[in-house]
């Protein structure tokens, strides 16, 4: 076991196809697309269910049901059905994003202080204004934590794309394994973990930026 692969400058050549920078880029590409697709599907659904209370059963159980779906199996099923390519990978990864986003959007909407929502309506906000100016900002902390856990999971799981012939950091794991090059496997594991932690930190910053300080448990302010 050694870090020679990771620290070999040749593997960091940004122009090299199969080099670490390009693998990171394609990996992040899968992650971003899967997060986008999954969120576009799950966020409105979760908000709607949380807002109306209709379909709560679905939202509550989506979390566990989603976790129980083996991503590798789904991916291979999709490849067998649709052939090799980006689509089956994106489907499998998006399915991974849906449960945490759906559940947290639902939980965020349910956790709202109904007195505040009542005040918003009573002051003359229209339903859309109540949603965008009061409910969403207040649900944001819960929502963001769901999105962050989805992002963590997708970054780690996107490695399986390599198992069906695609790119991404999984290449280092699969190819390294195939030729017993553990230094390459180690490099892949480290880069993925760093990427996951880095993305989470980035999202934590985004969260701090978009969530009102008034929603912190002990808000700091000019006092």
């Amino acid at each position: 076991m050694n870090l020679s692969y990771l620290f070999d400058a040749a593997h960091w050549d940004p122009t090299l196809s199969g080099g670490i920078p390009q693998l990171i880029l394609s990996h992040l590409g899968y992650v971003a697309l899967a997060l986008l697709i999954g969120t576009v599907i799950a966020l409105p659904a979760g908000l709607y269910i949380g807002h109306t209370g209709r379909g709560s059963f679905l939202a509550i159980n989506a979390g566990n049901a989603g976790r129980s779906l083996p991503t590798l199996g789904l991916l291979m099923l999709m490849v067998t059905l649709l052939g090799l390519g980006l689509t089956p990978v994106l489907i499998a990864l998006s399915v991974l994003v849906i449960p945490p986003v759906l559940t947290s959007a639902y939980a965020g909407m349910r956790s709202l202080d109904q007195r505040v929502v009542d005040a918003a309506r009573g002051m003359g906000m229209r339903p859309w204004q109540v949603l965008t100016r009061v409910e969403l900002p207040m649900a944001l902390p819960v929502l963001m934590s769901g999105f962050r856990s989805a992002a963590l999971q997708v970054v780690a799981t996107a490695t399986v794309a390599a198992a069906v012939g695609l790119s991404g950091l999984g290449r280092l794991l699969i190819d390294g394994l195939a030729v017993n090059d553990y230094s390459r496997v180690l490099a892949g594991a480290i880069v993925v973990a760093v990427l996951a932690v880095g993305l989470d930190l980035l999202l934590a910053l985004v969260q701090r930026w978009v969530v009102s300080p008034g929603l912190n448990p002990s808000p700091k302010g000019p006092s």
């Binding site: 076991m1 963590l152 970054v155 780690a156 799981t157 490695t159 399986v160 999984g170 794991l173 699969i174 390294g176 394994l177 553990y182 496997v185 180690l186 892949g188 594991a189 993925v192 973990a193 996951a196 932690v197 989470d200």
Partner: peptide
């Protein structure tokens, strides 16, 4: 705990034999 959970399972499976 967060960092541990973010290690891809495939990497961990491959890597543990080495350790």
């Amino acid at each position: 705990c967060g960092v541990l959970y973010s290690i891809p399972s495939l990497a961990l499976f491959v890597f543990l034999p080495v350790i």
